[in-house]
Simulated scan of single mutants.
Amino acid sequence: MPDNMPRRVTRTEREWRELLTEQEFAVGFGEGTERAFTPGNFESEKRKGIYHCKGCDTPLWSSEHKFDSGTGWPSFWRPIGEGLMGTKTDYKIGVARTECHCATCGMHMGHVFNDGPPPTGMRWCINGIVLDFRPAE
C-alpha cells in the first residue's frame, strides 16, 4: 500500500452499530439507499470543501468534482484520488449496476454510472448519510 493511502479500517458489526446511527448502518453496511432529496444529504450543498467517509474519516470527494445531477443524491464526476473507492457488481434491482464502497473501511457509498459530465463521463451517485462534509476555510 502506498504511503499516502489510508490504512484499512476493520470493525465488528457491534462496533459499527455503536459508532453509527441505525440509518447510517443500514445504508453503509446493509447496502441500502437513502431516499432522494433527503434533507441534509448534501445534494444541494454548494460550499467548497471535502466530503469524508462517515465510517473511517477518509477524504473521498471534493466539491470541485461535485455536480447537480438532478437525481436527489450528491453526485461527483470522480473521487478525490485514485484507489479510494472499491466497486462490485450489484443485481439487487434485477439489472447489473456498479456499487461503490470506501476502500478503507468498506462502507457502501452508492453507485457509479457512465452518464456523468466531462471530463470522465462518470456519475458517482453517493448517499449523503454516509458522508461528513468539511467546508473549506
Rank of each mutant, 00 (worst) to 15 (best):
V27S: 04
V27A: 05
V27C: 03
V27P: 00
V27T: 12
V27Y: 06
G28N: 06
F29H: 15
G30E: 13
G30S: 08
G30W: 09
G30A: 12
G30R: 09
G30C: 07
G30T: 09
G30D: 11
G30M: 06
E31W: 10
E31M: 13
E31K: 15
G32E: 03
G32H: 08
G32V: 07
G32R: 06
G32S: 11
T33I: 03
T33E: 12
E34Q: 01
E34P: 00
R35C: 01
R35S: 14
R35M: 10
R35T: 10
R35P: 05
A36M: 01
A36H: 08
A36Q: 09
A36C: 03
F37N: 05
F37C: 00
T38A: 12
T38V: 00
T38Q: 09
P39K: 09
P39Y: 11
G40N: 11
G40D: 13
G40W: 01
N41S: 08
N41T: 02
N41G: 12
N41P: 09
F42D: 06
F42V: 11
F42K: 00
F42R: 04
E43W: 14
E43L: 00
E43Y: 13
E43M: 05
E43V: 11
S44H: 14
S44M: 11
S44W: 09
S44F: 12
E45F: 02
E45T: 14
E45D: 05
K46R: 14
K46D: 13
K46F: 01
K46V: 13
K46P: 10
R47E: 14
R47G: 07
K48G: 13
K48E: 14
K48S: 14
K48F: 08
K48R: 14
K48N: 14
K48C: 02
G49S: 11
I50V: 15
I50Y: 06
Y51I: 01
H52P: 02
H52C: 05
H52I: 04
C53Y: 02
C53I: 12
C53W: 04
C53Q: 03
C53H: 05
K54I: 15
K54C: 09
C56R: 01
C56T: 02
C56Q: 03
D57Q: 12
D57N: 15
D57V: 01
T58A: 15
T58P: 05
T58D: 02
T58I: 06
T58W: 01
T58G: 10
T58H: 05
P59G: 09
P59A: 13
P59S: 07
L60I: 12
W61N: 10
W61P: 03
S62C: 07
S62R: 12
S62F: 04
S62V: 04
S63N: 07
S63A: 15
E64P: 05
H65E: 12
H65Y: 14
H65K: 13
K66C: 06
K66A: 02
K66I: 10
K66P: 09
F67R: 07
F67A: 10
D68C: 02
S69T: 01
S69D: 10
S69H: 08
S69Y: 10
S69C: 08
G70S: 07
G70F: 12
G70R: 10
G70N: 05
T71S: 15
T71R: 13
G72F: 00
G72H: 03
G72S: 11
G72L: 01
G72R: 04
W73E: 05
W73G: 03
P74D: 12
P74T: 10
S75V: 00
S75N: 04
S75D: 09
S75W: 02
F76M: 01
F76I: 08
